[in-house]
Simulated assay, not measured.
Amino acid sequence: MSVGEATATATSSDVLALDDIHVYYGAIHALKGVSLRVGAGEIVTLIGANGAGKSTTLRAINGMNRPRQGSIRFQGADITTAPPHTIVKSGIAQSPEGRRLFPRMSVTENLEMGAFQRTDKENFQEDIDRVFELFPRLYERRSQKAGTMSGGEQQMCAIGRALMARPKLLLLDEPSMGLAPIFVEKIFEIILTINGQGTPVLLVEQNALMALDSAHRGYVMETGRITLSGAASELKTNEAVQKAYLGLD
């Protein structure tokens, strides 16, 4: 798909497919015909200004905001009207904006919550070990209350908690928000590692430069609509994207 197209064409390799999604908050028309795709093995980023509808798109996918119109398919199955717990069980996990950890619980207990719906408890320790391998800092803090950690450490814990669900698609909502540059770089390194291990990622991120540097494809959202889409490398060189989101004149 070339830069400038605002539609998404279905393919057999789609892990996630949104078609003509309309979401309302009361009388407010928040999403106005959003269509997008995430393919197997991809990192796809959704960029846009505050209030553009990025987080609402994720909330439509995870079942928190049910669309009035359109369809959402995950691995070929229609999940448009599925409840959130069913969507999580099907293989979609999210690290939400603001982390939303259980602050009085330990790091390990927060990670365990990510595996709450799993029945294969025999693989539990293997997955805990994987998270600690990805995030050595969490191993050091494993007995510490999550609410006492730094913002970067809490973000690592939120991503680790999502990974404990063994997702077939990982949704990341503003993973770099409020973090020091050194933590931002680390978080994006981890995102690339997770994707390299085979997990597709849909990334909502205000740091458009980091997002486009990491993603395979991207969508630009404005006031509830997809206005541009294409290869991340092409979006990065698009004049309108540069002026609006990359701080380049």
Rank of each mutant, 00 (worst) to 15 (best):
M1D: 08
M1C: 06
S2W: 07
E5G: 06
A6P: 02
A8Q: 02
A10Q: 08
A10K: 14
S13D: 15
D14S: 06
A17Y: 13
L18G: 00
D20S: 07
D20Q: 11
I21F: 02
H22M: 06
H22Y: 14
Y24M: 12
Y24E: 07
Y25R: 12
L36F: 04
L36N: 01
G39Y: 07
E42R: 05
V44Y: 12
I47H: 09
G51M: 03
A52M: 09
G53P: 03
G53Y: 07
S55R: 01
I61R: 12
N65L: 14
R66S: 04
P67G: 11
S71C: 00
I72H: 03
Q75M: 14
I79F: 04
A82P: 09
P84I: 01
P84C: 00
T86W: 15
S90Q: 15
I92K: 01
I92P: 12
A93Y: 09
A93E: 05
E97H: 04
E97Q: 14
G98A: 08
G98C: 10
P103F: 14
S106F: 05
T108H: 05
E109K: 09
N110I: 06
L111N: 01
E112T: 13
G114K: 05
G114Y: 08
R118N: 08
D120T: 02
K121R: 15
N123P: 02
F124W: 10
F124V: 04
D129E: 15
D129S: 08
R130P: 07
V131W: 03
F132G: 00
E133M: 11
F135Q: 03
R137L: 13
E140K: 11
R142V: 04
K145Q: 15
M149Y: 07
S150H: 02
G151C: 07
Q155W: 03
L163G: 05
L163I: 11
A165E: 05
R166V: 02
K168C: 04
L169H: 04
L169P: 07
L172E: 10
D173H: 11
S176N: 11
G178M: 10
A180C: 04
I182D: 00
I182L: 15
E185P: 00
K186M: 13
K186G: 05
I187F: 02
F188H: 09
E189A: 08
I191L: 09
I191D: 06
I191T: 08
Q197H: 11
G198F: 10
G198C: 00
T199A: 02
P200V: 03
L202G: 04
E205A: 12
Q206S: 09
A211Y: 02
A215L: 01
R217P: 04
E222C: 01
G224I: 03
G224Y: 11
R225H: 14
R225P: 01
I226K: 01
L235W: 07
L235P: 08
N238C: 11
A240G: 11
V241S: 05
V241P: 12
Q242H: 05
A244F: 09
